[in-house]
């Protein structure tokens, strides 16, 4: 039990996908101008990431390794991720049209969110079990959502601040992201392994 809690904390904070591994930077900069859509994007990505981590484990253990076609790993994972994203898009469209409208183009773009593929590949590399893979995916997605919402909150404040014009907008966003990343380095003190 303790091991699993540590795994979630480790993936969400210590090895945060966005700020420590630098994966998934596209939605990190793209969907972080409003807290509402950041929460929506975060929850959609959480769903996709967890589900695709499980699917990737199943494909890896039951298809790729028994057949000895490990070289098709990236292709197979992308196929599975694309299917999961498509399914999520249909489900969100049915259940919450408002969220569907506010996420807009970024929903299909979860397919190309490298955090999703990255987590699946890292799982395959480290040889995690099914439950550990799922927790790894879930923890990474929690970290992703946390950062996205936090950054969106910061940017909402920054949008109102008076900034020297060369820094206004995206440059200030990048600077803030850098400082956040530095701050998250502090969590490496928590790491057990």
């Amino acid at each position: 039990m303790q091991e699993y809690v540590l795994l979630i904390i480790g993936t969400a904070l210590v090895n945060n996908v966005v700020l420590v591994k630098f994966l998934g930077l596209c939605p990190f900069m793209g969907v972080s101008s409003k807290v509402d859509s950041a929460v929506g994007m975060g929850s959609a990505t959480t769903f996709v990431l967890t589900l695709s981590a499980v699917m990737a484990w199943m494909l890896e253990t039951w298809v790729l390794q028994p057949l000895g076609i490990g070289y098709l790993r990236i292709l197979t994972f992308i196929l599975a991720i694309a299917a999961v994203v498509q399914f999520t898009e249909m489900a969100i469209r049915k259940m919450s049209p408002m969220l569907y409208q506010s996420l807009g183009i970024f929903l299909p773009l979860i397919t190309t969110n490298c955090a999703v593929l990255g987590v699946a590949l890292l799982n395959a590399q480290s040889g995690n079990g099914l439950f550990a893979s799922m927790l790894y995916g879930f923890g990474s997605a929690l970290g992703f959502t946390l950062i996205l919402v936090m950054f969106a909150g910061l940017r909402e404040r920054l949008a109102l601040a008076e900034v020297p014009s060369p820094f206004a907008g995206a440059p200030l966003g990048f600077v803030t992201a850098g400082i956040l990343s530095l701050a998250f380095m502090g969590f490496s003190g928590l790491s057990v392994k």
């Binding site: 494909l59 057949l67 098709l72 292709l75």
Partner: peptide
């Protein structure tokens, strides 16, 4: 390889 990807 071809067969498994097609099936998938």
């Amino acid at each position: 390889a071809i067969g498994s990807l097609t099936l998938l």
